[in-house]
């Protein structure tokens, strides 16, 4: 895989992460479903997942960047699987609404597992030697992907500040603490 193709693939990964964060935001605002602490941690793990692709776009492909993706994906998979297990007993309605029959934390687990598999495939079938990666030329599509993710991180930081205020986040949030005074 050429560095140019690797950069394009990583930009695609950033758009996928942005799509996940945008969908979560849409559900939060449109259906007034405030994210729980574990839901917020899964969003944090999705943001952590973006560090590797941005490093690849900026500094060229490297197995080190895929290592960061693996670590972030394991973190996210641990958090989302914990939430799946919390609601796995028969009769438990789960937390929040569903999308195509699965709760969002189940989708999150599948997404993190997919990121792990994708990183594994990249490392096995498209190996890169350390130092081979050079900063490739990037265009508008790659820059837009990076700034989209960064903008969504800023919006998430603002949203969680409104939701939790300056104290610890409640386990089942029902209102924006900072807006309620």
């Amino acid at each position: 895989m050429s560095p140019r193709q690797a950069v394009a693939l990583n930009a695609l990964a950033l758009y996928a992460i942005s799509a996940v964060l945008l969908l979560a935001f849409y559900w939060q605002l449109a259906y007034d479903e405030l994210p729980c602490p574990l839901c917020l941690l899964q969003r944090v793990a999705f943001v952590a997942l973006a560090v590797g692709p941005i490093l690849t776009i900026r500094h060229g492909p490297s197995p080190h960047h895929l290592g960061l993706v693996v670590i972030a994906a394991v973190l996210g998979a641990v958090i989302s699987s914990r939430q799946v297990l919390l609601h796995i007993l028969p009769g438990d309605p789960g937390y929040g609404s569903t999308l195509l029959g699965l709760h969002f934390y189940s989708w999150a687990f599948l997404a993190f597992a997919g990121a792990l598999i994708a990183a594994g495939i990249m490392l096995v079938f498209f190996p890169l030697k350390v130092g081979e990666g050079k900063p490739p030329a990037t265009g508008l599509i790659e820059h837009a992907a990076v700034w989209l993710v960064m903008g969504l991180v800023a919006l998430n930081a603002l949203s969680v500040l409104l939701e939790c205020g300056f104290s610890a986040c409640p386990a089942n949030p029902v209102q924006y603490q900072l807006l309620e005074g």
Binding site: P37, L40, L41, R43, V44, V47, A48, A50, V51, I54, L55, R58, V146, V149, M150, V153, A154, N156, A157, V160, L161, C164, G165, F166, S167, A168, C169
Partner: peptide, 19 residues
């Protein structure tokens, strides 16, 4: 506040990765 710090932390990591 605790999650705000987490988002700012990884936001800083993204910024440093880019700039």
């Amino acid at each position: 506040m605790e999650f705000f710090i987490a988002f700012i932390n990884f936001g800083l990591a993204l910024w440093l990765a880019w700039r």
